[in-house]
Design a protein around this nucleic acid. Structure first.
Lengths: 133, 133
DNA sequence: TGTTGACCTTGACGTTAGGGCAGGGTCAAG
DNA sequence: CTTGACCCTGCCCTAACGTCAAGGTCAACA
């Protein structure tokens, strides 16, 4: 299967597929004319990759997941560990973003939003250092 | 004030300050020897920038905020609009991350985490396309 | 047979917001 | 006069591709 068909099948772009090959994640065969030939196994790997990426895993994390996916002798504990790591990252990120959102929401609520220059948002951002809400 | 003192004062790095200058955000004077000289206004701008960055605004968004900050004739409505845009982005990102976290949490909960290769996480990631939780 | 248009190849550069390093100039203290 | 702590510019690096350019290949159609 050609690269663009493989890409469409797996909901990816041709550029992504070339990238995955360049970093050694999914390496297709080559036909005599130099065209990439994606086989059934590659297509499965690419789908797995696409789903892993969609779940927020980085390419390096995907590399580890893919290794486990390909290894029938894997231990589910290893998979779980990777997932839990990602979960921790997600939680940390969520906490951070929540705080930003809460602050920003308050600031927006207190901003008149009219033609006057007085604005609590600007004031907060310019405060040298003090108790900030 | 020298660049490293300015950086320390504003909780930034010298590299960041040089970067902000290179993109025209905060441009200090130069002394005869070529050293950057950060004045009171630059320090205020940099603090404002640091706080804006910490609130999740991109440098381009910071550029607009800085423009409003510097302009005494600004309308708070313009500031509010930028903040609301950022808020929308944050909400969208939070929603996305929440969904990821919820799915991942379920998958982790259902993974035995032992030495067996059977793992719902791997299974979910390799499903060609079906109803996924 | 020739030619077009759609596909494929590689390679280089752009993106964000700086980090890190190399090579070299400047300054203040001892 | 030297040493160490600064400062300067410029280049390459990050993640995960997107975009563009120049050129090779292929299948169909006149």
């Amino acid at each position: 299967m050609n690269i663009s068909d493989a890409a469409q099948t797996c909901q990816l772009t041709t550029k992504a597929l070339r990238h995955y090959e360049s970093v050694g994640l999914v390496v297709p065969e080559r036909r005599p004319n130099g065209y990439r030939e994606y086989g059934a196994q590659q297509l499965k790997d690419l789908s797995f990759l696409a789903h892993s990426r969609a779940m927020g895993f980085s390419l390096e994390e995907c590399r580890q997941l893919l290794e486990l996916y390909r290894n029938p002798g894997r231990a589910s504990a290893d998979v779980k560990k990777l997932a839990q790591q990602k979960l921790s990252q997600l939680d940390a990120q969520l906490e951070q973003l929540h705080m930003l959102r809460d602050s920003l929401t308050q600031w927006v609520d207190h901003c008149p939003g009219d033609a006057s220059p007085t604005c609590p948002i600007i004031q907060r951002l310019s405060e040298t250092d003090a108790a900030r809400t």
